[in-house]
Write a protein that binds this DNA or RNA. Structure first.
Lengths: 254, 254
DNA sequence: CATAAAGGTTGACGTAACGTGAATGTCAAC
DNA sequence: GTTGACATTCACGTTACGTCAACCTTTATG
C-alpha cells in the first residue's frame, strides 16, 4: 500500500505540512518521489511515523526523536524512563493546579479570592522542581548543597526546620536500609520500620499520600538507575529490598 | 518595599528578561523608572505579578492574561472553568500515556515492542478530543452530526456500533434523569439505575474506571455551566441530582 | 475535450514567550 | 580608579509547524 502525502496525513491525523517538515529535517523521508515530484510513502514509513508520533505524544522534542530513531544504540529505555518521570511530575503538578482551581470555582464561585499564599502554593512546588531539574546540579556544584536546600525549603514554603527534618529522615532511611536488608525479609520488623519511615518522608514532599503513588515511586526507584545507584550505595540490592518492603507495607495498610 | 528588576525576578522565580518582556507587551509595567533608566517595581506590581504567574501556571497564554487583568468585566470564572476542563483532559491524557509507558518499561524492560494498535491507542483519544475542541462546532455546523460522530468513532478506534451504543446510553441517561429526579431521592432505585448507566457510558470513553474520576466528573458537571445547561434541559436541578446519585452510587461500590 | 476542482510542489514569512548575545551605561565596593 | 555586578536597548535565534503565494499535476465533471 502506498500513500500520497495527504493520505498518510489523514491516516495518522497530522497535517501534510507536518510531513513535509519531517522530510525537511530528515526525520521521515518518503520511500520515493514519483515522476512529478510527489512524495510517496510506503508501509515502512507508516510504521516509522507511528513510532515518531508515539514519542511526540510523550512530548519528546523532534531533535531527540531523530536521535532515538536513527541510532539503534540510543538507550531507549533510559530515554523512556526519563520522560516517564517528567510525565509523572507533570501530572502531580496538574493535580495540584486542578485542586487549586477546584477551590476557586467551587468555593468562591466565580470570584478569584484565593489569598496570595494559596495562589503561590500551587506553583512554588513546581518552581522548585523545575529549578532543581534545570539548575540543581550546577548550583550544587557552585554553591554547595546548603544553598540549594535553603532555597528549596524557601520555595516550598517549608520552614527550614521541616526541611531539615525531612533531610534527617532521608538519612535515617539510608542508615536503616542495610540493617533491614540483613534480615533478608521485607516483612521483618526492621524492613517495615524502613517502609514507614519512607512514607513519613514522602509526606513532606508530596501533596497527599496514596498507596498507588507510594508503590509507583518504589517501582520507579528500581527502574531508574539514578535511584538504584543511590539506594544501592550502602548495600547492593538495597533498592529492590526497599521496594519489596514498601509493597508489603502498603498491602498491609488495611 | 521597592524592587529592581532582578530582585523581583528572584522573588518570583522568573528571569529578568521575562519581566522586560512583560513590560514590552504592557502586561506588567514597573511603577516607575529611576533617573538612570532602571525599572523599579513596588508592592502593587508584585501582587500583579503573582496574579499573572497564577494564570500562567494554568497555561493561559499571555494575550488572554492581559485581557483578564485589564478588563475587570472579563468573565474570570468562565475563563477558569474553560482552563479547568483543559487541565482535566490533559491529566486524563497524561494518565493514559503514563500507563502506556508503564507497560513498555515494566513488561518489555527496555524494549519498545508495543504493537501498532497499542502505539496508536495512546494518542488517538487525544487527537479526537483536540479535533472536537478545535473544529467540532464548525464541522458539526457544516456537515451535520453524523460526519463528526463517524470520524470520532473512527479516531477512537471504536466500531460505529460501539459509538452508537454509547450515544444511545447517553440519550437514555437524559430520559431517565427526570424520572429519577421525581423520586426526590438520590439513593432511590431509579436514581441508582441512572448512576449505573452513567458509569457504563463512561467506560466507553474513559480508559479506565475509578471512583475518584467518576466523582470528579460529577463535580465538574455541577461546576460547569455547559453541563448544567445540558442536564438541566429536561428538569431543573437535574445536574445536581445526577451528581448526588453518582456520589451515592460510588460510595456504595464495595 | 475543455475546464474546473482538488491536490501536489517549493519558498518564505509568522507565531509565542522568551533565551542569548552584543554594545553600552551605572552603581557599590575595595 | 578600577573591577565586577547589574542595568539598559537592540536584535537575532528558538520549536514545530500554520499559512500564504506562485506554480504544476491529477482527477472529476458538464
Amino acid at each position: 500500500m502506498e500513500y500520497t502525502i495527504s493520505k498518510l496525513a489523514k491516516l495518522a491525523g497530522v497535517s501534510s505540512r507536518t510531513l513535509r517538515y519531517y522530510d525537511e529535517i530528515d526525520l521521515l523521508k518518503p520511500s520515493r518521489i514519483n515522476s512529478s515530484g510527489y512524495r510517496i510513502y510506503g508501509q515502512k514509513e507508516v510504521d516509522r511515523l507511528q513510532q515518531i508520533l508515539f514519542f511526540r505524544e510523550l512530548e519528546v522534542d523532534l531533535e531527540t526523536i531523530i536521535q532515538i530513531m536513527n541510532e539503534p544504540n540510543f538507550d531507549q529505555s533510559n530515554a523512556l524512563i526519563h520522560h516517564y518521570n517528567q510525565l509523572v511530575q507533570k501530572r502531580a503538578r496538574l493535580d495540584k493546579l486542578i485542586e487549586t482551581i477546584d477551590k476557586t470555582i467551587a468555593h468562591q464561585k466565580g470570584e478569584i479570592t484565593l489569598n496570595n499564599h494559596e495562589k503561590f502554593e500551587a506553583f512554588k512546588d513546581n518552581l522548585v522542581t523545575e529549578n532543581e531539574q534545570k539548575y540543581g546540579e550546577e548550583i550544587r556544584k557552585k554553591y554547595g548543597d546548603k544553598t540549594v536546600d535553603e532555597s528549596n525549603a524557601k520555595f516550598r514554603g517549608m520552614s527550614k526546620e521541616d526541611y531539615e527534618a525531612m533531610e534527617k529522615l532521608g538519612n535515617e532511611i539510608l542508615e536503616l536500609l542495610p540493617k533491614a536488608f540483613k534480615t533478608g525479609d521485607p516483612s521483618s520488623e526492621l524492613a517495615q520500620q524502613l517502609a514507614a519511615k519512607h512514607k513519613e518522608w514522602l509526606t513532606y514532599s508530596w501533596p497527599s499520600y496514596s498507596k498507588e503513588a507510594h508503590r509507583g515511586l518504589a517501582e520507579m526507584y528500581v527502574a531508574d538507575e539514578r535511584f538504584t545507584a543511590y539506594y544501592d550505595k550502602g548495600i547492593e540490592g538495597g533498592t529492590e529490598f526497599l521496594k519489596d518492603a514498601i509493597f508489603v507495607y502498603v498491602d498491609k495498610q488495611n
